[in-house]
């Protein structure tokens, strides 16, 4: 499979770097609002992705990575929240070792996720790629792979440089 060449820091404009960093910073801004409802982080990430994906492949990659990496964690946080509420308000649900295990896992995953978010934001601002485990590969594959439509665009391009 062919992939587009990766942009290097010197090829990127300041705006691209800022937009790429913004994908991760968005998460921190949204977390303040979204803490009680984890889904708000996800909504923010989705909006950011659709607004910025056409800026450049570099920004597209970072926005996509920030978005898809937040999906499983948001779901897990949602399950944890639902679980906790059921324990508080339902007689049939009790705090158990399984719940404590889940809670501990959530705490570690969230902390790791925020640390990774800061690292990714800093790298993105410097115009560098930063790959999360799995989500990085997936985003790279989706954004940088050479598609048929890419070559068709080239073929159908009308404007060409003059022959000098």
């Amino acid at each position: 499979m062919n992939y587009h060449e990766l942009p290097q820091p010197e090829d990127l404009s300041k705006k691209e770097k800022e937009d790429a960093m913004g994908a991760y910073m968005m998460m921190f801004a949204a977390v303040a609002v979204g803490l009680p409802l984890p889904i708000i982080n996800l909504i923010a990430a989705v909006i950011y992705y659709f607004v910025n994906r056409n800026v450049s492949r570099f920004v597209h990659f970072h926005a996509l990575q920030a978005l898809i990496s937040s999906i499983p964690l948001t779901l897990m946080n949602g399950v944890g929240l639902f679980w906790g509420i059921r324990i508080l308000f339902s007689e049939d649900w009790h705090v158990s070792q399984v719940f404590y295990g889940y809670l501990g896992t959530l705490i570690i995953l969230n902390i790791s996720y925020y640390i990774m978010g800061i690292l990714a934001a800093v790298k993105a601002y410097k115009g560098r790629m930063f790959y999360y485990w799995f989500f990085g590969q997936l985003s790279y594959h989706y954004v940088f792979q050479v598609r048929e439509t890419d070559t068709m665009e080239k073929k159908s391009s009308v404007n060409r440089p003059p022959q000098l």
Partner: peptide, 26 residues
């Protein structure tokens, strides 16, 4: 499948964390 190996490792890490906290909480 892109990233399958890393996905499995990530899932393994999550499950292991869960198990560790499960036993630690006891």
């Amino acid at each position: 499948i892109v990233g399958l190996k890393q996905l499995l490792i990530l899932a393994g890490v999550v499950v292991s964390l869960w198990l560790v906290f499960y036993f630690v909480s006891a």
